[in-house]
Design a binder for these strands. Structure first.
Lengths: 341, 341
DNA sequence: TTGTATGCGTTATCAG
DNA sequence: CTGATAACGCATACAA
């Protein structure tokens, strides 16, 4: 750091213009003669100028920062979502400050404070630890993805539609009994719609069904042990029925499939399996698993659209005080592979 | 945005101190009487003060930003590495600006420029598109993870050690023929050591071996088709030998395992399989796969250590001009599961 | 222990 | 089309 950075002052001195003119070269180049643009342009790389956006932010108040709070990147859903959010840089040029949080509300509030200190213009929340009421109280542009969002704008998969497609497929394939395996999702979480749609659809078609909502556990191996119990139950309980099993995600579906195969050496006709998420595991399983694919790219783009609108409204002379939250649902798509007929 | 932010000036006026004293409250609180600290503290939340770190950065030059450039988050290795890097926030309080880049050098240089414009203090590079020579030419604190790094500091897995463990295990298990399946890794990439170690170890123990380095392809399904050909070759070529197969990563290992099982209905004694990475897929496969686990958390922490040292050196009165690059290797661990005896 | 003056690099306002 | 000057919010000599 022997030599300080080159600044507008240096360029100004070098070119015999004022700092203002140098600034204009970047922000309103049309207001300079081509000749002078050329001069400045040359000076810029003769002196090796590098922008300082922080100074710019301080002066004009637009940080172009967006905060992201994500619970983890272990689940494919989150890492893919982050990927797609980062990819929107190409369109909007917002920079992303990323925090991971699943250690509770206090930590998350700290992160938000930190983000605010860096003058973020907006926030995208994927984590579940703070209520939307709390989040709304920050009064900044904010979009929730796939989480409770009573008081803030949100984008979620159309979970109802997804589960309906899965269930309908199993019914069309003439399963005698339908089983849905899931954790005990709270009713206010978007994913609860998967359970609702499953029940509704079974009821409507008069198909016997069973809900198995007692999955829980911290590690894969925990979950797998539980799944083994669940599988054995089902396998014994409905020996000569055709069983249509719809699982909450592809990891569960893969476990279930592996258990079937470990027992039968193949996937017998008496089983059909549908997962959810279109995670890599669904495709990489011993038999590629039929699943419901969330359109993560669409969700990410929609979320940024919503956020950008809020952020631009902020920059108006006359910003609408606080627009009512907008909620968007993105339809998922059925991806048929080999665990259904 | 009706009311502007609360600033030191407001607090100063409110408390009848000077702005300097308010500043000191944050940076050298000990230099104030407890009484005055209290006064200011009260004023702070009575006025609802929020820090502006960007102004602070502009004034003192320390942005506390670190840039990260990662090729993708699709591979577990990268998403886990990002997770672990973000987790170092707890220790160092550096904020991370994350870019994803795999669309070539031009894009990546743009990202770096953008990062520099935000006054990042250091950069962590996981992508492969820019040479370490180019990267070194930016003259900023920088650490490469698991990539070519001739001219910059780096942290990588000890690939040689990892492959040696895998190969040795297969030899101990009395395989007759060892096969290593990989892409055609360039010699200057750290992962090339996996091939070297495999060959060295086989040679040293006088075990027949075969290299299959023609894997390539963009999609899982592409790769899977190729793997099928490779598997069939091997299966036909060594019908009554015990085959020890060491694959470059767990995705490949899982493919191979699935092919074996699809053919034999189980994993016969004539096959042993070892993967690399300890990705989730290794544990979630139809038979849990023995693999070499990279200590991603250690790698991430080591990388940040290295980077922090460089960054702190920068902040000295008398910074050592440019320290020679440091290279660290982190030993991976063998994770025995069920695809080896 | 506290205050004054100045600087960080850019943009905005108002003149010309 | 171009300039002077004052912000932006905070930190840091230097004084007191």
């Amino acid at each position: 750091m022997g030599k300080k950075q080159v600044t507008f002052a240096d360029i100004a001195e070098y070119t015999h213009f004022s700092k203002t003119t140098i600034s204009r070269y970047f922000n309103h180049p049309d207001s300079l003669t081509l000749e002078n643009q050329e001069k400045i342009s040359r000076a810029l790389d003769e002196l090796g100028y590098k922008k300082n956006k922080l100074a710019k932010v301080l002066a004009n108040g637009k940080s172009e920062f967006v905060g992201i709070i994500v619970p983890n990147l272990y689940l494919h859903y989150y890492s893919e979502m982050l990927t797609q959010l980062l990819a929107t840089y190409a369109n909007y040029h917002y920079k992303f400050l990323v925090f991971m949080s699943d250690k509770g509300a206090a930590e998350e509030e700290n992160y938000i404070d930190e983000l605010l200190a860096y003058q973020i213009e907006g926030l995208i929340v994927l984590s579940h630890t703070l209520s939307s009421e709390k989040l709304a109280s920050y009064h900044i542009p904010i979009v929730a993805i796939e989480r409770e969002s009573m008081h803030i704008s949100s984008v979620t998969s159309d979970n109802y539609m997804g589960a309906l497609q899965a269930t309908s497929l199993l019914i069309r394939d003439k399963c005698d009994i339908l089983i849905h395996i899931n954790v005990d999702v709270p009713k206010y979480v978007p994913a609860y719609d998967r359970i609702r749609a499953f029940e509704d659809t079974c009821t409507e078609h008069n198909i016997p069904y069973e809900l198995s909502l007692n999955v829980s556990g911290d590690s894969y191996n925990d979950l797998f042990s539980q799944m083994k119990v669940i599988f054995n139950n089902i396998d014994e309980k409905y020996p000569d029925k055709k069983k249509g099993v719809f699982l909450a995600n592809d990891t569960y579906a893969n476990m279930f499939l592996n258990l079937v195969i470990q027992k039968y050496g193949c996937l017998p006709d008496s089983y059909e399996i549908v997962g959810f998420d279109n995670s890599p595991i669904a495709n990489e399983a011993i038999i590629p698993i039929t699943t419901i694919g969330q359109q993560i790219d669409v969700i990410a783009r929609t979320a940024m659209d919503l956020l950008v609108k809020q952020m631009e409204n902020r920059k108006q002379r006359k910003p609408e005080p606080d627009l009512a939250p907008t909620h968007k649902k993105i339809a998922p798509v059925l991806i048929r592979r080999e665990t259904t007929s």
